[in-house]
């Protein structure tokens, strides 16, 4: 049954990327386009997390108790693969900073054009 979770979370990751790309390509509102960028990032993150997941495993955090009980070897066998988690941690932060810059730019564009519609903002230059 756990295998199913892994499979379905891959499917959901794919769905998030597709929804995000749809929003970027076809939504007119800037905030929604930005949400689309965020969804693409979330989908990729979910792929990485699911890659590191181990059905029936344990959280890869070493505690004091593990060393004293001498169960470090079992821990290495059972723990999930934590390298992708580290990558996701980096990517979440990068995604958030990109998002912040994008939102700042869209506020500035709104102040100039009084609109968040991409069709309106990019009206005059079509090159």
């Amino acid at each position: 049954m756990n295998v199913d979770v892994q499979l379905w979370s891959f499917v959901v990751a794919g769905l998030l990327v597709i929804i995000g790309l749809y929003a970027i390509a076809f939504m007119d509102n800037l905030v929604k386009k930005i949400i689309g960028v965020m969804l693409v990032g979330d989908g990729v993150n979910l792929v990485l997390i699911t890659e590191g997941f181990k059905p029936g495993g344990i959280v890869p955090i070493i505690s004091e108790k593990l060393f004293s009980s001498g169960a470090v070897g079992d821990f290495a066998n059972d723990a999930a693969y934590s390298l992708p988690f580290a990558l996701v941690l980096t990517n979440i932060v990068i995604g958030a900073s990109t998002l912040a810059v994008l939102l700042g730019i869209s506020i500035k564009l709104y102040q100039h054009y009084r609109s968040l519609s991409v069709a309106h903002i990019f009206q005059e230059d079509d090159a």
């Binding site: 990729v44 792929v47 990517n91 990068i94 994008l102 869209s106």
Partner: peptide, 19 residues
């Protein structure tokens, strides 16, 4: 704005390839 939006998608593509 255009550069960052496309940059977000391209970054996602690179990270997915790496994944």
């Amino acid at each position: 704005l255009k550069y960052l939006i496309f940059g977000g998608v391209a970054g996602g593509a690179i990270l997915l390839g790496i994944a």
